[in-house]
Amino acid sequence: MYQFFKNIFLTKGFNRTLVYDSLTSKIHFFPNDLYDQLLLNNFRIDKKNNEVFEFLNKKGLLQKISDDLVDCFIDLDDEIQIPYDIATLVFELSGSSSKNLYKLKNQNILQYNFIFADYTSLKSIELFVDFINECESDTIELTFLNGFVYSKHLFELIKSVKKIILLNNFAGIKIDDPSTHKNRYLNSWNDIHFRLSINFINYLESLKHHTYFNKKVFINKDCEIKNSQETKEIYGNLNNDNSFDIAKVFKNPTFKKLWSIKKEDTLVCQDCEFRRLCVDNRLPIKIKNNWVHEEECNYNPYISKWSHEDGFKSLKELDIITKNGYLEMNKEKLSLITNELWEG
């Protein structure tokens, strides 16, 4: 008898099932019909079923197991506790905000993402370097936006920093890095990379939380404290107090309102096979008992196509609409379109 390795997780979508191998960080797909059949058999496979066995075994998903031992491999607990008040603090580095960086020193923060743009001054870069040299985080993420002109100065100042430094270069600026440390990583980005994060932490966290808004704090160039760049509500200003206490911010009952909105509770997303690996910055809106997004995703789970792929059609083009908190679609028409897209 064979069964799936316990590091293999399945997410059933509208057209297909996503298979996530958390050890190799690979994803595979198989038909929903196969998922249903496997479910009936408690996800155990008899080798005599050659077609299914060969298909799954070739992908390295199966382990051989004797009848005596089959109950000895328990399912992994797919919940995660992040032992930090803030998982990511996103900080727009301006002259004004940088003067308040010292107030963050004693906070329980896992990692930072500093935004460099036209509001970032030379003085603020110096204050930033002082801060990262003293803060406890092992990883610092730097994001460059249009208008940032001091990259040469920045890299000169951080050349001896030994922390892991992640770079998001959205401004397309030339990076001249004199450091010889191999601790710098440039995140390439594209439409898919933006929306998906294929790693185990993300997979676990998405079970009960929104992986973009959960445990995030955003401080803008004017020192205003928000949950994220996309949210409107302001929960204080770093300039106003001599110290910063995140516990005070969290006491506000609405600050965490988006943290626990799961993709399972969101129309369209709940039909998507990528829902446990997705990072989505669109603001969810509640209509009756369901959450929806006003803006469409760049992946359409009903035809299994990304927006950059041939044959992509938007939900609107397919007459898939959310009305009064429910999803309406013509499944027969959709089936015809999907057949046409994927045949031949």
Binding site: T88, N113, T143, R184, S188, H193, F194
Partner: peptide, 24 residues
């Protein structure tokens, strides 16, 4: 990873809390 003057190695990078945390 696009390698120019950066000291880079393959993927990995976001090893601590790996995901996109800011969208322009």
């Amino acid at each position: 990873i696009e390698s120019n003057s950066l000291q880079t190695k393959k993927h990995l990078a976001r090893e601590i809390y790996p995901r996109q945390s800011f969208f322009p």
